[in-house]
Write a protein that binds this DNA or RNA. Sequence first.
DNA 1: TATTGTTATACTCTATAACTATA
DNA 2: TATAGTTATAGAGTATAACAATA
Lengths: 142, 142
Amino acid sequence: MTAAVVQSQLATALVQLSHLVQQVFIDVARERDLTPQQIQTLCILSAGPVGMGELARALYLEKSSLTGLVDRLERRGLVTRVRDARDRRACLVTLTDAGGALGCDAHGEVSRRLEALADRLPDADKKQLISTVGLLAAEHEA
Amino acid sequence: MTAAVVQSQLATALVQLSHLVQQVFIDVARERDLTPQQIQTLCILSAGPVGMGELARALYLEKSSLTGLVDRLERRGLVTRVRDARDRRACLVTLTDAGGALGCDAHGEVSRRLEALADRLPDADKKQLISTVGLLAAEHEA
DNA sequence: TATTGTTATACTCTATAACTATA
DNA sequence: TATAGTTATAGAGTATAACAATA
């Protein structure tokens, strides 16, 4: 293979892989009557309550887009807005028990399906994949 | 590393990588005043005209969802619906010159950015990644 | 004045169900 | 009757711009 061919195939491979992962999210979300964005939000909140601004940054959304997303989650009883006593402009988006359980369940199922996908890969390939993806992600941070 | 840890890291790595790739699509689309779905549609059509049903399957969409997507692309002069002479119910969605050029440009830019992301990877790692992703995709087909 | 978050508005994407026209 | 595609309707996600309340 020439370098050019390797690169072209690499881009195609990355796109295919991304589609596989996205489809897992879509399927897992759908089975729980959620959207991928809602699951992603629940997963972020599982680390603890965060304000709207910080949550918007974590999701790469405008604050105004987040308002509706949190509204819908709140309407379904999965999160609540807790007013911050020290800064009365702010609120902390907080998982309810139901939201925490659903987020945990969805996260686990996504992991299981991705692992199942890679199940037949030799262990050496898995380690190599983790390491390579780690390098790619680090590259992006810089 | 235990096998369990390897698997958990693998799922996380795949999700991170998928987000990176999606972000590239979003950025490239946005710079061209398009959506990721529109770019994806143009890319599929670059292989040649296809009917609505086949295009919907390729995009994993309901036919009715595709109608609007093609409407918007047509309104912007990027595709046209060509009536099939042999089956007057059907139409072939076809790229215009502008649509072909834009799709080609976007596809090239996505590839360039993904390649740039992987630029510092050793060549052996790239080949390994292509091969591993090929196995994963094949696993998914089954 | 700056920051936190919401509202108003407009558009895209998507699905389900019912429909039209053709085969 | 079956198939190709559209229309009607509803809801989710997103952005920009203008706004309110608080710091």
